[in-house]
Amino acid sequence: MHTDIITISQLCFQYHNEETGLDIPVLQGIDLTVKKGEFLAVLGHNGSGKSTLAKHLNAILTPTSGKVLVEGIDTADEKRLYDIRQRVGMVFQNPDNQMVANIVEEDVAFAPENLGVPRDEIRKRVDAALESVGMTKFKQHAPHMLSGGQKQRIAIAGVLAMQPDILVLDEPTAMLDPSGRKEIMQAIKRLNREQGMTVVLITHYMDEAVQADRVVVIDHGTIRMEGTPQAVFPKVKELKGLGLDTPQATELIYLLNQKGANLNPEILDSETCVAELLRNIEINR
């Protein structure tokens, strides 16, 4: 939990607009470190630059200025491109648009095949990857016959087969129904807890961000807030100003406190919220 696995310093990035000839700044001086084994959530409203940041973590994009180091490797170093991509597995929003083959295990094998891994080893990796997302049963299926959550788990298995050290997920649950979302969050958390996978989760859902070790809030390409969920979410007013919601329980406590109640603001889920309210009722009785 103590060594830095990704170090981002003074990262700036701009898109060049061909029509107007202007450069549009998207990331403006991001400083961020990700620690080995941590579960980091990245929040920010639409267009704040989250996906752009994610694409810098595995050298799909490289900085206009500043530096991104992944396990000490500079992402701008083209000779190490595939070393970086292999270390940082990336999962996107739409599972349909990430799958290459029409049989699950063939799809999961895609990355190790690209890396030139020997056949026996591919087999092992595919089986292990499918096992760790609980999809072993489906290895002979066609992806289009699976549910959204199952497809997204295959997409995760597809990057796990590279044996990455870091998993970056860009709104992986945005297209899923509630049960699919739960499946994915469980899979991510299990990888983080049991296999010590470093996770960077970009999300719009506060209830997902709450489960992270640390939260970073991005706005207009800069980091505006950072800290544990307990530290970040009680700042309801500040978050609203950045166009974000807060977990419902936190907001309820916040509103009650505004009306003069004296409740612990660091409450993130409904269970602890209920417990806190009951405790308060007991005291006032």
């Binding site: 292999q86 990336m90 094998a109 990355a111 891994v117 056949r119």
Partner: peptide, 18 residues
């Protein structure tokens, strides 16, 4: 993009599962 993320770089030195 997803294929690039999974280290796709054409057929050279590619191995196969099957």
């Amino acid at each position: 993009t997803a294929m690039e993320c999974r280290c796709y770089r054409g057929g050279e030195n590619r191995t196969r599962l099957r």
